[in-house]
Amino acid sequence: MTNSPAAFTEETVDIAGISVQLRSGGSGEPLLVLHGELGVPDWLEAHELLARHYSVCVPSLPGFGTSSFPDWLMSVRDLSAWVNWFVRECGLATPLNVVGFSMGGWIAAELATTNSALFSKMVLVGAAGLKPREGEIWDYFLNSAKDAFQQSFHDHESAQYLKYYGRDWTPDEAEQVETNREAAIRYLWRPYMHSVTLPDLLPAIATPTLLVWGRQDGIVPISSCELYQQGIANAQVAVMEDCGHMPEMEKPEEFANTVLGFLKG
């Protein structure tokens, strides 16, 4: 646990055709963070821990946070194309490391199937994108926004769950959650949170990959982790015990250590 003040900047920048809410901090080689379908509420403790070693860049993806949302973005493939554009316009040196959470993991995997020179190493965390072999991806849109966060955490007493989600939201926070849901629904509606072609493209990935999964992931079943592992050559797996769909928020330290171990190894 860090007690140092969060050394990060938050700004709004015009990049790759949209107005992007961009949080960044740290120094060194760039590390791109692609958030999941619920957006990212803050510069998180996990970002801070990673920023001690890397220059961490966390854009709010189009439609999420306060980033703008042009009509042309209609699918995760469109989003992947946008991320590629974003990386280039940001001037981030490539290949670069990437950590993608849930939908963000799916985006990273899509990019890695089309361009093996973009990422040096890739970490997929509870990644969506594949139809699970067992179980189903939890339905965000048959459930309330509150339920989604509850379902995403195994431990409802964990500090960041209580800090961000397990309490009454301010009107602004509730509006932001709805904005994020409006973005997610456009990218993920059907086929629901998966691609029918990605399984066949996974063998095209040459990027060294770590799959991180919470054993109790209540959103994307752990059977999807096995499918990613089978599809991506030499993919490593780190299963976090007593942990749900958001290891970065539920167990930030263990999560950061796992990621750093892989990136530096």
Binding site: L142, A145, E178, E182, A184, I185
Partner: peptide
């Protein structure tokens, strides 16, 4: 409500 009026 979230079924009768989904996001968007």
């Amino acid at each position: 409500p979230w079924i009768m009026s989904p996001p968007g």
